[in-house]
């Protein structure tokens, strides 16, 4: 393990260089570069199958890239196991809704505090004191997170009884509980109606202001993306197409083509893309 390097203000929190991965000869992502600065909200967008989720999986250790590297806070994280990457402060959510569905909302968020409440085996079996205090702190912070996300009234509800919108919020809550430095959300607003998506945008802004340093967002809801992002990276066919501020992206012909050109004939990416 390398020594902790204190990142200079200019050094990005996350820097991925030439990330590539092939599945049985098919290039899913090719030479993809990405940086996320300290305090920055970056969105990663692109038509279905562009490779966004695959990038998330490479950055968080679920897939091993066949080429390229990723650094987080100046340390190489490619090759690390997912839990080891999470422990460094890079925490992600999943596109396919993933919570611990037999646990209640509150239990889900408490479980998310795993790293804060880790205890030695001695503490587990003999001395409870320190771990009890940590557990109590985790419960308190869980209650705060549940409130922050507006899930207060459903705190004791088992997760499998939640509506789609609440599930999305709960996923964010579980991720927040792990105290990420950089939070990565994969289509957190999928399945939400316009009002819910707007409310979700508000929650995201609060989160970035109070809970995490930076946010990397994959999202098809353009209203949400344009509203919250400092910078947008557009992917198509596993490659970076263009990146820039929301205004630059909106004016780009390439983006229009990527979405409308393919989407009109494809499976409705245009519909999603135009939903702003």
């Amino acid at each position: 393990m390398r020594p902790e390097t204190t990142a200079s203000p200019a050094a990005p929190l996350l820097r991925a260089e030439r990330l590539s991965i092939t599945f049985g000869g098919i290039k899913a992502v090719t030479d993809f570069d990405l940086t996320v600065g300290d305090g920055e909200i970056v969105s990663l967008i692109g038509p279905n199958g562009a490779g966004k989720t695959t990038c998330f999986n490479m950055l968080t250790g679920f897939y091993r890239p066949t080429g390229g590297t990723a650094q987080f806070r100046g340390q190489v994280i490619t090759g690390l196991k997912p839990h080891a990457i999470a422990r460094r402060g890079l925490v992600r959510s999943f596109q396919k809704t993933s919570v611990m569905k037999n646990l209640t909302v509150f239990e889900n968020v408490v479980t998310g505090h795993y790293l804060q409440t880790r205890q030695s085996l001695m503490q587990t079996f003999l001395f409870e004191g320190a771990s009890k205090r940590a557990a109590e702190a985790a419960r308190q912070r869980s209650a705060e997170i549940v409130q922050l996300l507006g899930l207060g009234t459903r705190s004791e509800t088992p997760a499998h009884h939640l509506s789609c919108g609440d599930l999305r919020l709960l996923e964010v809550g579980v991720a927040l509980a792990a105290r990420p430095t950089l939070l990565m959300l994969d289509e957190p607003a999928a399945g939400l109606n316009t009002a819910e998506a707007n409310a979700f945008g508000e929650v995201l802004r609060t989160i970035v202001a109070t809970q995490v340093r930076s946010l990397l967002l994959v999202e098809h809801n353009m209203g949400l993306v344009m509203g919250v992002s400092d910078r947008i990276v557009v992917m198509n066919f596993g490659r970076k197409l263009i990146e820039g501020t929301p205004a630059e992206i909106l004016g780009s012909d390439e983006v229009r083509e990527a979405y409308l050109g393919k989407g009109a004939a494809g499976k409705g990416a245009a519909g999603k893309g135009a939903g702003r």
């Binding site: 968080t60 839990h83 611990m100 408490v110 998310g112 795993y114 205890q119 587990t124 771990s131």
Partner: peptide, 25 residues
């Protein structure tokens, strides 16, 4: 009831979520 027990339940419930909150399955 310990943290390890909760981690085990997390892995059983959803291995990917467990890993993403820092649990070593």
């Amino acid at each position: 009831r310990s943290n390890s027990g909760r981690a085990a339940v997390a892995v059983r419930e959803n291995r990917f979520v467990a890993q993403s909150i820092g649990v070593d399955p």
